[in-house]
Computed example of a mutant assay.
Amino acid sequence: MWVKDILGDAYEARTLPLPDDEHGELVATLVRRRAGQSTRAVLYVHGYNDYFFQTHLADFFVSLGYTFYALDLRRSGRSLRPGQTPSMVDSVSEYFTELDEAARIIREEDGHDILVVNAHSTGGLTTSLWAHKLQGTGIITALTLNSPFFDLNANWFLRRVAPVVLAPVGRRQPMRVVPAGLSTVYGDSLHIDRKGSWRFDTAWKPLEGIPTRLGWLVAITHAQRRLRKGLNIDIPVLVTASTASYKSPEWSDDATRMDAVLDVEHIAEFARALGPDVTFIEVPDGLHDLALSAEEARQLYFDTLQEWLNAHVG
């Protein structure tokens, strides 16, 4: 059942029941904004410590004639329930359940012939593996990735050795917190009350991030290893990222024009592992979420999306 969403009259939300977990109710939430009688749709999938609030992203896709959908994944945003650990999963494949159901609703119930996926960060990692699983089905028409989380932003030892060593511990103690200093630099670069331009619910997207759980880290690094071995996504893929990464845990204005979360060189390197039809494009002065960049970089990102969609979807 669709009901009015928190974003206002233009948006509807639908709760997608999932099998309960040890904390009780488990759901995902599908948000919709219609675009007339369009047979085209786009599904936006957020990243870690995130949820859908970017109404200007919906405006962009609706202006192109796409019905806009966004999925708040289990334990995230609208789908977070009391007692749950935000964004926690034991495997990114758990998300395939709500992704499958969202695609079914979009195609079968709402009757869309074209389904483009637009995914950010961890959502980009998850939907890459999902698209690989769906090869040959024709369910997804195209995949567009906004700063996908293809590798940890760390040194070689932490990226390649530590995850293997920690995996057995992670399976025994998945809720154990990984010691790490949480920086507010990225959150500060976004929120209107700090250095940014955007207003969002900091209970659902804390500016300092959320503690990293060992089980989640094992799940992510396992998915990243699978991706780096090579996928066979049989639809066109667009990968976009900023031109530079911001490395300091302390604030400077450079954080307003760089990716302060991931190493963009990793994104460029592993984009080629997705499949045979991959386009990689850099966006100068882009933030980690390119759609939340300053106006000039944001417009360049939208122009890139539009040109690529015109060429690959029509």
Rank of each mutant, 00 (worst) to 15 (best):
F61C: 07
M258G: 00
T279S: 15
G124K: 02
Q37H: 12
D234K: 09
T256H: 09
A13D: 04
Q173D: 08
W204N: 12
D193T: 14
Y44K: 09
T202H: 04
R176W: 13
I281Y: 05
L129A: 11
S245N: 01
H288S: 07
A28T: 11
R107K: 13
H56D: 14
V313D: 09
R159P: 05
L309P: 15
F157C: 07
L115T: 09
Y246D: 00
G230K: 15
G24H: 03
F52V: 09
F280T: 08
F96W: 15
E12T: 01
G123V: 04
D188I: 08
R33A: 06
A273D: 13
P206C: 10
T256C: 08
S252A: 01
P206G: 09
R194Y: 15
V178P: 11
S121N: 08
R213F: 02
I210N: 13
A119I: 06
P86N: 14
Q54R: 13
A102S: 13
A180L: 13
Q84W: 00
Q54S: 14
A28N: 04
L207P: 05
A154H: 03
V42N: 07
L80I: 01
Q306E: 15
W308T: 09
V185E: 03
D188K: 14
W198T: 02
Y246I: 13
G196S: 01
A241I: 03
V45M: 05
H312V: 04
L73H: 03
T29G: 00
T243F: 00
S245H: 01
G65A: 08
T97A: 14
A311L: 10
R225S: 08
S38F: 05
P163Y: 04
D20T: 09
N118G: 01
R81M: 10
D9N: 12
A294R: 15
L7Y: 12
L57H: 05
V169W: 04
P82N: 01
R171S: 02
A180G: 12
V283L: 00
G215E: 05
A255P: 06
E22M: 03
D277N: 12
L16W: 02
F149K: 03
L7Q: 10
G36V: 05
D234Y: 02
I106G: 13
R104E: 15
S242E: 00
M1S: 04
D110C: 12
R78N: 00
A241R: 02
P86T: 11
L26I: 04
T15R: 07
V27H: 00
N146K: 02
Q54T: 14
I281C: 10
P249G: 04
S63K: 06
T126F: 05
D72T: 00
T85K: 09
K4T: 15
S189N: 08
N310E: 15
L262A: 06
P163R: 03
A294Q: 14
T67H: 13
L190A: 02
H288F: 07
G196M: 02
L166F: 03
R172L: 13
V237P: 13
S87N: 10
S38M: 07
Y95D: 07
G124T: 02
W130G: 10
V178N: 11
P19A: 06
G24C: 00
S189R: 08
S248L: 01
S93N: 03
I140A: 10
Q299D: 11
D263F: 06
D188W: 13
S248N: 03
M175R: 12
R74D: 01
V89C: 14
F61R: 09
P276C: 08
L73W: 03
H222L: 02
G196N: 02
W308C: 12
